[in-house]
Design a protein around this nucleic acid. Sequence first.
RNA 1: CGGGGUUUAGCGCAGUUUGGUUAGCGCGUCAGACUGGGGGUCUGAAGGUCGUGGGUUCAAAUCCCACAACCCCGACCA
Length: 512
Amino acid sequence: MAKNIKPRKDDYAQWYIDVIKAAQLADYSPVKGCMVIRPEGYAVWEAIQRDLDRRFKDTGHVNAYFPLLIPQSFLAKEAEHVEGFAMECAVVTHSKLQKGPDGKLAPAGPIEEPLIIRPTSETIIGHMYAEWIQSYRDLPVLINQWCNVMRWEMRTRLFLRTAEFLWQEGHTAHETADEAQKETLSILDIYAAFAEDILAIPVIKGAKSDAEKFPGAVTTYAIEGLMQDGKALQCGTSHFLGQNFAKAFDIKFLGRNQAQEHVWTTSWGVSTRLIGAMIMAHSDDEGLILPPHVAHVVSAIVPIFKTPEEEQLVRAFIEKILAQLVGPGELEAAKTRLSRDRIAGYFFDPITHQQIVVDWRDTRPGDKQYYWEQRGVPFRFEVGPRDVQANAALMKRRLDRAKETVQLSQLSPTWLRDKLQEVHNAMFQKALTYRTENTRHANTYDELKQLLTTHGGFVRCHFIPNRANEAKIKDETKATVRVIPFDQSNTPGKCIYTGEETTTEVLFAQAY
RNA sequence: CGGGGUUUAGCGCAGUUUGGUUAGCGCGUCAGACUGGGGGUCUGAAGGUCGUGGGUUCAAAUCCCACAACCCCGACCA
């Protein structure tokens, strides 16, 4: 039992915080609502960036960077957009600090037009696109940026909702509505594939109801995941913006027909919230469980010895293990590398910089087991005199604590990659099984209410999306329409709220 | 922004009722020794504007006043 982590069943919210603290993913900061992402957490973000960035580039996108500050007037140009974001904007109104009569620093030098710190960049990017796009030959524009944004939230939670967060935001402009639509959906596919193949989180693709869509979008698509406490979490969104922003920012081009037309735009993003999703989807009462593809340490080797003689033996044997897993070149290169407190790192994958570490610290083996376990490292190897004798190592799997003795001769990079993939598959399956078991069907509103209160999870039902009715349902159940899944059965039924005939099925759930 | 509560070491708390020496305790942290196949033992150490400002007093963590921050419940938000 982990003594610094509250079990999920006792207090899920506290468990979540404890896991993050124990794994040193993040820390609270002196600024309310803002978090510090520590190296262990940032490594996960880097893995997310690395993989997604490749996927974006593979589909023709390029990266750029736009300013943090946006003229306040820009936000107001799109009516729904300003409505959606005005309440949570941080506003910069002064350009300097000056000492007042009391000797204290106070803001001075008011600036002519207040600037807002970007809550999202549609407006400033729209402004630039208006200058850059003149002709159909300039299209499509396929730009992404990795940056931070700020939304002044009342209630924050590490990774899930913080005032400042890191994300990527793609902004594209197209000649036709059809092309923009396709882009929106192809990005959603990328997000879904990424969530499932890299983070091992099964997600449901679908459209948002009008009540839940992005302010300023025509249609918002999302991938939705189910967390272990039965609440849903939106893991990524892709918006078809129609010509709303094109009209607001006058993004026009001369079309093939010699007429001025407005472009069709999209925007899409995922954020550090994905790290929260990853934690809540997989981790257990012992701490973090990292999906292998984003684990910056894929294996930790824990040496066990009593005497200096035994240490010699063990050390020599571990070198043999490393030689087979990372190669003699890397084994040699690692010797000149600085390491903290005798945790030696060996790059297992030179591209992702995922590593295997050997924990030579002078602490008890039990401490080390917990240490690496709480950090979610997929595999631990125990190597002691007994193992040296047997020419083997004891391998422990983080996911289920399964133990396995592996012979030295078995070890190779492909062997470890296969093992990591097995863990990934098992994690995905486990999460998928959980989701399947926690997706239920309601035929009436009473059933919906009853299922939500007794089980949580997703509830699927016939429903005609409608802003007013959704608001009432949210009032009564705290649940919202998470998605209108693409995967529709197309069988007619009665809307659980109005009783009208419809084929539309939606997923309700309480959400983060 | 409304209602309630809290504020003393990194965390959790005692001390405030009835003002009085150097503000303690547990956990954690750090160092050393012994130890070593799942959180071991011992020794030692560091760490405090007692939320902030003002007042009463010979003397304030303690009494008085004002303010602030944080937490919970609403509201807002994905």
